[in-house]
């Protein structure tokens, strides 16, 4: 097994013990409070390859509840982004299943597992003003847009008139419709400055906590994962992973090694 799973200290603030001891002030993350019923996302023995190539994912099994924030850490090229597409139903695995509350993902209509990408500029229709992009995904109360830092004037702008950080707010908001049970965030703040990064995560974590939506956070940033995840999965090569659930994990890598 080439990955290790680390329960992230089990504390509600999502900090590792070493950080918790430090005297500096921080704002503790709220614990998930069940509002909507708890959902369970299961990946069962997923095998995936592109067009008959070598398998990118082999026997991947993963279980996440909607009260969890699971971090998946690894370098690019290890199959993380492919995993994200399979979990959200954008790619169909050759073997295995993705189940939400025991149901396979619907083929059409609203996706209960939403994907947010690293590059928002590639994820919005360049020929639509942003208000239209947002309206397509549902109704968003003004209050929510304010909290998200979306300036009402941006709704009549075109995508090429906004920065990556501004566009990403639309993509995050759009993924958080009422029917969303899980959100897969694939390196969503990697290219942003750290203030925008903290803004987006504050909002995303808050909505997910309050509305009981599960989060799978794909990142290469250990500090970020340690700050926000309830559980961290660390691997170099997903294709050789047999289980990334953490339930059966026996090998616990010390956090200081994880940080190397």
């Amino acid at each position: 097994m080439r990955f290790n799973v680390q329960e992230n200290s089990g504390k509600s603030d999502g900090l590792c013990p070493e950080e918790s001891r430090r005297a500096e002030p921080f704002e503790p993350m709220r614990t998930p409070s069940p509002v909507a019923a708890t959902s369970i996302l299961k990946l069962v023995n997923i095998r995936f390859s592109y067009r008959g190539g070598d398998p990118i994912l082999r026997d991947v099994t993963l279980t996440v509840t909607s009260q969890e924030r699971v971090g998946i850490i690894g370098p690019s090229g290890c199959g993380k982004s492919t995993l994200a597409k399979v979990i959200t139903g954008f790619e169909m695995p050759q073997e295995g299943q993705v189940l939400v509350d025991g149901q396979v993902l619907p083929r059409r209509g609203f996706r209960p597992v939403q994907l947010i990408y690293q590059h928002p500029e590639l994820a919005v229709n360049p020929h639509w003003q942003l208000g239209k992009t947002l309206a397509e995904a549902g109704d968003f109360p003004q209050k929510m847009l304010n909290k998200m830092g979306i300036d009402p004037a941006w709704l009549s702008r075109w995508p090429n008139e906004l920065s990556g950080g501004e566009l990403q707010r639309f993509c995050v908001a759009r993924a958080l419709g009422a029917q969303t049970r899980f959100v897969v965030a694939d390196e969503i703040t990697t290219m942003l400055d750290v203030i925008t990064q903290a803004q987006l995560w504050e909002f995303l974590l808050d909505v997910c906590n309050r509305h009981n939506k599960g989060l799978i956070i794909i990142t290469h940033d250990h500090n970020l994962a340690r700050r926000i995840c309830t559980r961290i999965s660390h691997f170099d090569d997903l294709s050789s992973a047999t289980d990334i659930t953490g339930r059966n994990a026996t090998a616990h890598t010390p956090l200081h090694e994880l940080r190397e």
């Binding site: 002030p25 920065s163 203030i195 990064q197 803004q199 995560w201 504050e202 700050r227 926000i228």
Partner: peptide, 21 residues
């Protein structure tokens, strides 16, 4: 200063607002 406080390892505190276009 706000940048420092927004780092995941130093508080993760988001300062409001966005960079001008």
């Amino acid at each position: 200063k706000a940048l420092y406080r927004a780092l995941p390892k130093h508080g993760f505190k988001p300062h409001p607002g966005t960079q001008p276009y």
